[in-house]
């Protein structure tokens, strides 16, 4: 008799993902859902979907969901959590959402150490609007709005949000993970689980940045996109735990 060792988590609905082939959003959704299953929190979780490709996240999770305006998910999460402190609140945000239009909201939610978990998907480009430059696009990266490559002289350098937020005293947990190989995926799930666990334990704000591919707007196959992420993104965006309240001496 064979045992099921890998199955669709219960915290995901049956709705097929709306993402392009090879896009990592689906993996991240699944990891969040697996964590919700393992911590048995789906019935108490409220998720906040952003503006962008993952606006449709509200269709995919088996918990209460709300769609926030672009960049404002941490403020919306703050409002929800202050009214319902016993619920688990997470935001799901892309790089344009979190690191550009919503920079103020993420910095201040982190600084207040709101007891929320932020899943930050960094794919170095704007997906839904068709491949424009993100605040996290790499130096020299060609996008619709940096057609000659991102020029740091006029467009600035890509923003490292984990490092930036780690300068704050208050957040409980900040980590960057990737998904390009199984070992990374296992680590990513552990980080996401820690983020949710810290919220359950009332430790404060947690943010997990997930380096992610956008094969469609990068103009690469999913396999090439994974290689590009490993070769180009990870050297600039190191995978690490930047802040862990448990390890403060």
């Amino acid at each position: 008799m064979m045992k099921k060792v890998f199955a669709r988590p219960k915290s995901l609905t049956e709705v097929p993902f709306t993402y392009c082939p090879g896009c990592h959003h689906g993996i991240i959704h699944r990891l969040i859902a697996e964590v919700m299953d393992e911590l048995n929190i789906a019935q108490d979780t409220i998720g906040i979907a952003p503006v962008g490709c993952s606006v449709f996240a509200y269709l995919f999770f088996n918990c209460d969901m709300i769609v926030a305006a672009h960049g404002r998910a941490p403020a919306v999460a703050t409002g929800i959590k202050r009214v319902k402190p016993n619920n688990i609140v997470f935001t799901y945000q892309g790089d344009g959402d979190l690191a550009s239009i919503g920079t103020a909201e993420i910095v201040h939610a982190a600084n207040r150490s709101e007891k929320i978990t932020v899943i930050f998907v960094n794919n170095a480009i704007y997906g839904m609007t068709g491949g424009q430059m993100a605040p996290t696009s790499l130096e020299g990266q060609v996008t619709q709005t940096s057609p000659y490559g991102r020029d740091p002289k006029t467009m600035g350098m890509p923003i490292r949000m984990c490092e930036l937020l780690s300068t704050l005293n208050s957040p409980a947990y900040i980590a960057r993970v990737a998904l390009t190989k199984p070992a990374y995926i296992i680590r990513a799930k552990k980080a996401i689980k820690k983020g949710f666990q810290y919220q359950i334990d009332g430790k404060g704000f947690s943010l997990i940045e997930v380096l992610s591919t956008c094969p469609t707007n990068w103009g690469l196959s999913p396999k090439e996109a994974n290689e590009w992420l490993e070769k180009k993104m990870i050297p600039y965006y190191p995978l690490a735990e930047f802040k862990n309240v448990e390890e403060v001496s």
């Binding site: 045992k3 060792v5 993902f17 090879g22 896009c23 993996i27 995926i185």
Partner: peptide, 19 residues
């Protein structure tokens, strides 16, 4: 060998693994 790497990496949760 049932390692489930395929399922872990599938962005569309299209795989189930039995062992």
């Amino acid at each position: 060998n049932g390692c489930a790497f395929c399922a872990m990496t599938c962005p569309d949760v299209a795989l189930e693994v039995y062992k």
